Computed example of a mutant assay.
Amino acid sequence: MNKPIATDKAPGAIGPYSQGMEAGELVFTSGQLPIDPVTKVMPEDISEQAKFALENVKAVLAAAGCTMQQVVKTTVFLADMADFPKVNEVYATYFAEPFPARSCVQVAALPLGAGVEIEVVARR
């Protein structure tokens, strides 16, 4: 049976979806925006945005009893592919070898004008 994941350590959903979902051995996070869960503010700097998005991913995973080391797949959405090097630099500090599989795509726009959004799949 699927079980929703919810935590106040990451921003709440801005639509009709869960922050994450447990499905057997797998944990799926919804795309996490770079919003500070305390102040509800999104930084302008793309490196800070990447950090907040990954911290929010980490918080949702923690609510499911998982860590970043259990992540098997990530998807990174960028509003501007020119931000890839800066986002990649921050991203590299959250994962160790063996690195999870990853897709990174540029999109036309992200919710609330974000520069980055990140979702992951982890395995227990």
Rank of each mutant, 00 (worst) to 15 (best):
I118P: 00
A109Y: 12
V107Q: 00
F28A: 05
T29N: 05
A108V: 15
M81Q: 13
M1I: 09
F99E: 10
V121S: 00
N88Q: 11
P16F: 02
E55P: 03
A59E: 04
E117P: 10
E48R: 15
A96W: 04
G113W: 11
P43V: 09
A109S: 14
Y94E: 00
L110N: 09
Y17K: 06
G15Y: 09
P34T: 03
Y91N: 11
S103D: 09
V27K: 02
V27G: 01
V107N: 00
A114V: 09
E117K: 12
F95H: 12
F99W: 14
K9V: 05
I35Y: 06
I35D: 00
E119C: 14
I46G: 02
D45E: 14
G24I: 07
N56S: 10
P100T: 06
V121Y: 01
L110D: 06
P98M: 06
N2M: 13
A13D: 03
D83M: 01
G65T: 04
A114C: 12
N56C: 10
V57G: 02
K40H: 09
P98Q: 08
P100N: 09
V87Q: 10
N56W: 08
A62V: 03
G65V: 04
L54W: 06
A63G: 15
E22K: 14
A108L: 15
V107Y: 01
R123P: 01
R123G: 01
G31N: 05
Q49P: 07
V72H: 04
K40F: 07
G115P: 13
F95V: 10
Q69M: 03
T74D: 06
V105G: 05
G31M: 09
A53C: 05
P34M: 08
E119R: 13
Y91W: 12
P11Y: 07
S47A: 15
V87Y: 13
G20I: 08
T39L: 09
G115D: 04
V87F: 11
A13N: 04
I14N: 11
Q49N: 05
G65A: 04
V105E: 14
L54H: 07
L78K: 12
L33E: 07
V41N: 14
V71D: 01
I118G: 01
V57R: 03
E48A: 14
Q49K: 11
A13Q: 09
K73W: 10
M1T: 11
A108F: 15
E48H: 10
G65I: 01
P16N: 12
P34V: 06
D83H: 11
E97S: 15
E48D: 13
P100R: 09
A6L: 12
T93K: 15
M81T: 07
Q32P: 02
F77G: 01
T29E: 02
V41Y: 10
A92R: 15
I118S: 01
A96G: 03
E97D: 14
L112P: 07
V107G: 00
Q49F: 07
K51H: 13
A10C: 12
P43G: 04
P34D: 04
E48M: 14
L33S: 10
L110P: 09
A62L: 04
N88D: 03
A53H: 09
K3G: 00
T75N: 05
M81K: 15
S18M: 13
P11E: 02
I46S: 02
D83T: 01
G113I: 10
E55C: 11
Q32S: 00
K86C: 00
F95I: 09
L54N: 03
A63Q: 04
Y94H: 05
G24A: 05
A6N: 08
K86Y: 06
P100E: 02
F77S: 07
G24F: 07
